[in-house]
Design a protein around this nucleic acid. Structure first.
Lengths: 342, 342
DNA sequence: CGACCGTTTGATACCGGTATCATAAGCATA
DNA sequence: TATGCTTATGATACCGGTATCAAACGGTCG
């Protein structure tokens, strides 16, 4: 049975014998309404199965109820966790989430996003790393007048709009854990150049090494790009060194999986011959053999916080005040770390 | 510099010295327009940076330009691939994608979705497995009058609205591959009860076994639920059998990873002692050691097809005609299969 | 020259809500 | 009874687009 067309506020008004405005008052829970009238209108609404038209509402109110999610993120799990976290917050509101992935590296990327923002004029947008590090994008949001929140690995220079984790400290802790276990030659697989998260993780490594009084050896630090294959290439380079590192920290789980992969190929036992730590705590980390010690950052929690920040009006397009929300990542100890041999 | 408010069609009309309707004609590329007028209006539009308000448009046209994506899917990679595929199609249109994950098992799930559909009245929705198998949901879409497309493992009984893969044949092929490699005792880890995909994959297994003239042994078939841990439990059961199966087909990669995990724990070599095949070709499949032989189904392609089907008006809410779009899954041979020993 | 025709444009109503402001009703007070 | 105040409701305009239909215009033809 198809209802040929939805009832409108006019139908409700006519049937209930009141004006549109009164119905509007009922919908919006205006306090200055006679109880009887309200009840009568509510009955008619329930009767007809009336649902207000969000487009009309948006037009009249000169604002809409869309929250955008902009990302160029290759990590599916992370994107989905973010969506989940945001939707938990949006669920009981009238807001809807509209996703807008973009092509990293496309020369028209900013223009594309600009078009999206101009067209939809979303109430606010959430921007995921790595594109959240792009200051031009933030400027664009401000210019167009769309409130925004950036998720990242550090507060950048835009604290009012940041929801950030403390990658640096977390990595510091992870490396310290390796050092406590007796490791002295610890390889580092970097994230891609130009990524703040990669930078933060590197700093965490360097701080931990220095604080322990160990030498910072360039040969132990290898470039990667957050992808599995780059983890493999990095591992080949690291495991060719003599003496070999006894542990490797990879800047994300995927690369850590690549390192593990190569270690396997070479007949090394993990963790006896080589300890490995990753970052992100994606599902792959717990599914690998051995299960991967890694750093978990509270993505869903951060996403919820970001959504709340957007809705609460903090992080308005131009606000200069407000603090970054900071979240703590924690080391998840599994079976890929053992005391250093010898 | 924030533009305090966006120019409207009235501003354009006033400045260009024409009526609203003429501007509207320019926007909608109406053919019956004088070239000069068009040019003049276009200049003003460019000048002001005018962008039509989608809400007002939606209201006037009594339709909107939203495509919903409904899913209760735990597989992040798959959801993201679908989003990507759909957005490729939507990119050059005026449609926007709005995602609506739901909680599988929540008793209010259908009501939630109904509310979503009533409120937003999206132009169309795409429904992912496993919830795409829910006929009540399809009926709900039809009742509300929202066109829909269901993605699934078989055409179900709703061909006009289906975009389906051929899981049964694909699994048949995978098992045949094992049999050709000399395997005779092949374990099967089922997907969760009540899932069409699980059913189809089981049928594919059974057909292949029977066609090869092998006996169908109940003990070789173990229940799973598509999660890693259930793969582990299933593997424990299977590897306790005497004689042990020499190969296992798991109904998805995650469970295959669980099987591999347990095989490792027991000191079995994969693939020498045990061959394993998964299903889905998620990234984990290629990252495991050894890389997993698995079945790849063309998710992004299917998603594109589904989006086109929605936009093209096929699969209207009540259409009885139209064919299911069928897509071929293929076996990706990696290193987790070896000839049966002995 | 006037009737007729096709092309181009505009006046106005309308989509389904909300905001403004006026008005009606109820009641206390003078 | 008249006055003023509060509370409940409605008439109307408006948000920014599109649709309908009429009108203006220029040219052709009898």
């Amino acid at each position: 049975m198809k209802r040929s067309s939805q009832p409108t506020i006019n139908d409700v008004a006519r049937i209930a014998g009141v004006s549109k405005k009164t119905v509007s008052r009922v919908i919006n829970q205006s306090p200055l309404l006679n109880g009887d009238t309200r009840k009568r209108v509510e009955e008619v609404i329930a009767d007809l199965g009336y649902v207000p038209n969000p487009q009309a509402r948006a037009l009249a109110l000169r604002r809409n109820f869309l929250i955008g999610l902009i990302h160029d993120n290759p990590n599916a799990q992370m994107v989905l966790n973010v969506q989940q976290g945001m939707l938990e917050v949006l669920r009981d509101t009238e807001f809807e989430l509209i996703v807008h992935p973009v092509n990293r590296g496309s020369p028209t990327m900013l223009a594309d996003i600009g078009q999206f923002l101009e067209r939809q004029r979303p109430f606010g947008v959430m921007i995921l790393p790595p594109i959240s590090e792009n200051d031009q994008l933030a400027a664009l949001c401000a210019e167009i007048g769309v409130r925004y929140v950036r998720m990242g690995s550090a507060p950048l220079d835009d604290a009012p709009h940041m929801v950030a984790s403390n990658d640096r400290e977390a990595v510091h802790g992870a490396i310290a854990h390796l050092i406590e276990s007796g490791h002295r030659r610890i390889g580092l697989v970097l994230g891609p150049h130009g990524f703040r998260s990669a930078h933060e993780r590197q700093k965490g490594y360097e701080e931990a090494i220095e604080r322990a009084g160990l030498p910072l050896q360039r040969t132990l630090i290898v470039q990667g790009d957050y992808k599995f294959e780059s983890g493999m290439r990095a591992a080949e380079q690291l495991l060719d060194l003599a003496p070999r590192p006894t542990a490797v920290f990879a800047s994300n789980d995927e690369m850590a999986a690549g390192v593990l992969h190569v270690a396997r190929q070479r007949g090394l036992n993990v963790p006896q011959d080589l300890s490995i730590i990753g970052f992100d705590d994606t599902p792959i980390a717990s599914h690998l053999w051995p299960p991967l010690t890694t750093v978990r950052w509270p993505i869903a929690t951060m996403a919820r916080a970001a959504a709340l920040k957007l809705l609460s009006g903090e992080g308005g397009a131009h606000s200069e005040d407000g603090e970054a929300s900071l979240f703590v990542s924690t080391l998840i100890r599994r079976a890929s770390v053992a005391p250093a041999a010898g």
